[in-house]
Amino acid sequence: MIGKLLIRDLAILLPGGRRGGSLLPLLFFLSVAMLYPFAVGPDAQLLGRTGGGVIWVAALLAAILPLDRLVAPDLELGVFDQLALRGISEEFAIAVKMVAHWLSFAPLLLLATLPAAALLGLDGATLEIVLLGLLAGTPGLAAIGTSIAALTATLRGGAALSGLMLIPLAVPILIFGAGSLSRPDLSGIALTAAISLLLVAIAPFAGGAAIRAAREG
């Protein structure tokens, strides 16, 4: 059952998927990394010092793009109702969506970090910390994104609103994730992972409650 739900969600969300899931978040991410050197000038030292932070901001913003396809269409189609009648709770369905959302953007984002790092002139050590940090932080971003997508699913203009709601909630991940770049050890990444875990644990319950509230509305 979990496999069938996950396969359906992935088929919807992956690039080339059914709901117009596209490479857009990825291209958006890469274009930020490409524009930044044009904006600040070809100072290799400055780029190397700030590039990691730019990658983090770009990743956070790219994670917002697929949110409008995540929950709202299924709520409108009545999929959550039919799942509930089959004994599949809203929490479970949202948890599966969270995993599918992460799988559909995070691995590709990590791959795209390689060309982005080259564009920004990051050295190997920095790139390694950025990759580890994104690996630890993206599950948290997926968790926030999924709960917000569920909360805003019934609202008009929910897509724009979800972007605005995600940003403040994602600040702790950004602080520790990007902050790990300026620390000699990996403690920043450990903190990022801790926040991610907490968010991943909360998100299914927040999202499930949001779906049930949407029914009553």
């Binding site: 359906r8 919807i12 059914r18 709901r19 409108e76 189609l77 009545g78 999929v79 109702d81 039919q82 009648l85 089959r86």
Partner: peptide, 16 residues
């Protein structure tokens, strides 16, 4: 007993 519901929303993916 299990319940089946038929309402105005078919819950079928439009693109498939």
């Amino acid at each position: 007993g299990a319940i089946a519901l038929l309402d105005e929303r078919p819950a079928l993916d439009p693109q498939l």
